[in-house]
Amino acid sequence: MSALLEVEGLHVDIQTQAGRLEAVRGLDLSVAPGETLSIVGESGSGKSLTALAIMGLLPPGARRKATRLRFEAQDLGALSRRALEDIRGRRLSMIFQDPSSALNPAYSIGSQLTGVYRRHRGGTAAAARDRAVALLERVGITAAAERLGQFPHQLSGGLKQRVMIAMALMCSPALVLADEPTTALDVTIQAQVLRLLRDLQREMQLAIILVTHDLGVVAAVADRVAVMYAGEIVESGSVQEIFGNPQHPYTQGLFACLPKGRAGRHGERLGTIPGLVPSLISPPAGCAFADRCPLVLNECRRAPVPNFRLSPTHAARCLRVAIPSVGEAAYV
């Protein structure tokens, strides 16, 4: 199947007081129609900037470069501002981490939902309203018609995130980027919202890029996983490959740091691997994980480590993969 989204060689630089930070360094990914790709990694690894770069919503001071950035056979980098606006919210949409700040406090949720719909689809106010009610009901909001007049501050966090999901789906997009959609919610609500996302995805043949630092979330909804570290994807594969046969010492470390036997259960945050993430203002020449890696070789620090293919779907950016005799990482 041809890919819905193809990203190759994505770089994001961001200007900070301390210098130019290379937050995303040569990232490749692709998403097929209807699949869920989960990007997982510690906070600060560049997940949000990756999502925002795809949307063309980088904050001031940040710059995007990519050798390939195609969505539905269009080059996102070459589109005019207006053409990009026509795609955003209609074919390509986004759900943000904190629904409390992502909804406009001054407008009712009905006004915000119908505003998106009428922007792209036109039509009457009544049609937009019907669509809003239908979607609110679909995301599990009761008394949807009455809720349209309510304002964000009158809703709980879970309800607000459901409204955000409804808003992202108003125009039936092909791909939704969800940046930690459950991080701001209570644990019990998190599971409900995830189940909702998964159900909606099946129903609407939606592709999702789910950004998270929560392995439980990954296990619950993802088809494929990309593990991100210091601005790079260090390992990618199907959920089975990543959970059953992790190859990069960083991925292995993530699982080892979870309480034994509970990996993949919902609500598990990434554990802490000893050591510090290197500064991305002048990133290391070789593997960025070398300083924290129990299996480090001299070669690791010398030059950029290539991505080694383990199966048609599984790849890891680690020299140990190419030298299998050394065996598994000491974490396990």
């Binding site: 919210g89 986004m94 406009n104 505003g115």
Partner: peptide, 23 residues
């Protein structure tokens, strides 16, 4: 964040500026 949301859903700059921000 809410202005970023408005832009993420493709609203035009005048709408973002005068409806969502100025309000």
């Amino acid at each position: 964040d809410y202005v970023r949301t408005a832009r993420a859903y493709g609203l035009r700059p005048p709408t973002v500026l005068f409806k969502h921000a100025l309000r």
